[in-house]
Design a protein around this nucleic acid. Structure first.
Lengths: 192, 192
DNA sequence: TTATAGACTATTTTAGTTTTTTGGTCGAGG
DNA sequence: CCTCGACCAAAAAACTAAAATAGTCTATAA
């Protein structure tokens, strides 16, 4: 049961990091701030995470994983591919703003360690594309998508990720502006 | 005829500015660089532009105006609202990357003078929205847009600008990747 | 052995100062 | 009316010393 205990502490540290990031912003929080918030010594953090970058990376991916879980859950409750696509997009639009480390990353606000940043962005994009590809495949089989051809599938997924990313970052959505989200999802799924 | 001559020199200075911006990047070019490129004395620049910000602003809007002219020209050649919308989007996607000052501005790479930046962005967004609203109105009248209602018109235009902005900035389009652009425009106009 | 923390070090950031560059003005002159 | 060289004040870059911070090592308790 030691593994489980270990994971528990790691999660608690991530939670503490999330709290202080929210309070002070990413750039202004130190490892000691995180340690204090977690009620641990600073060196203890290094027992669980080999570097600050490592901790940041795991926090970011944890936030992303949670978002993806919510999206997948929402998708499951939809039968049609169009419904799934709509749910996916609206979930991502709503949830991303709640994240403290993923959102700044996608906005390009994070500076140091280009390799880490690139790797995180790559993982995120690939995961998103994979999910959308699955949805598109289903729609292709069911014949829901009138204008999508099999050969365009990957490119279409890539385009949709780009569209959603743009909307996430450039559309000022007041806390769930349901109307706008409805317009967006309908436009993509059904056309204007 | 002095006004015309005046405009000519102003345009030549903007052209010089564009050249050096392209060579050194916005941040690294000075008024003297621009003056040298234009073959003028630095103070002469100040006879035509009252400040560096003023010059930057006029260059940016000049690039934007050229883009908009191209888009409008392309739109004129289309009969249907859907056709116009497609042309508008593809023109903007292709042309923006060619700009040396508007593109960095939209990417958020420009730092100083918040007011100027905000004012430029506002002008750009409003102009884009106005054009799209006109197209949408036509489509509404002709009944081309199956899912668009009159009350959604402004929000829909806002959403489309957001979508296009996202694609401009996040989709890596190799010199006119016609296929992707076709997918994008079709997706927005016709749905998937 | 596992988990923790305190003391320590090496590296990075920051704050403060000096020097250089640059935006902008002025008056002279073609 | 248009252009420029000389000039100035303000901003930026370069440099440095001091402080903050990331990361390590060792001791210790469970």
């Amino acid at each position: 049961m030691n593994l489980s205990k270990d994971e528990e502490v790691k999660a608690a540290i991530l939670e503490a990091a999330k709290n202080v990031f929210q309070k002070w912003g990413l750039k202004k929080t130190t490892m000691e701030d995180i340690a204090n918030e977690a009620g641990k010594g600073k060196s203890t953090l290094y027992y669980y995470y080999k570097s600050k970058d490592d901790l940041f990376g795991e926090l970011t991916m944890s936030e992303f994983t949670i978002m993806i879980s919510k999206a997948k859950l929402a998708i499951q409750q939809e039968k049609t591919a169009k419904g799934k696509l709509k749910k996916y997009i609206s979930t991502m639009l709503i949830e991303l703003k709640q994240t403290v480390s993923l959102f700044p990353l996608l906005k390009g606000e994070i500076k140091g360690n280009k390799e880490l940043i690139e790797s995180l962005l790559k993982q995120v994009e690939e995961t998103e594309e994979r999910i959308i590809i699955e949805i598109l495949k289903q729609g292709l089989i069911s014949g829901e998508f009138h204008f999508l051809s099999k050969s365009d599938l990957n490119k279409a997924a890539n385009v949709i990720v780009g569209i959603v990313r743009g909307l996430e970052l450039f559309l000022f959505l007041d806390n769930d502006d349901i109307e706008k989200i409805e317009i967006i999802t309908r436009m993509i799924a059904e056309g204007i």
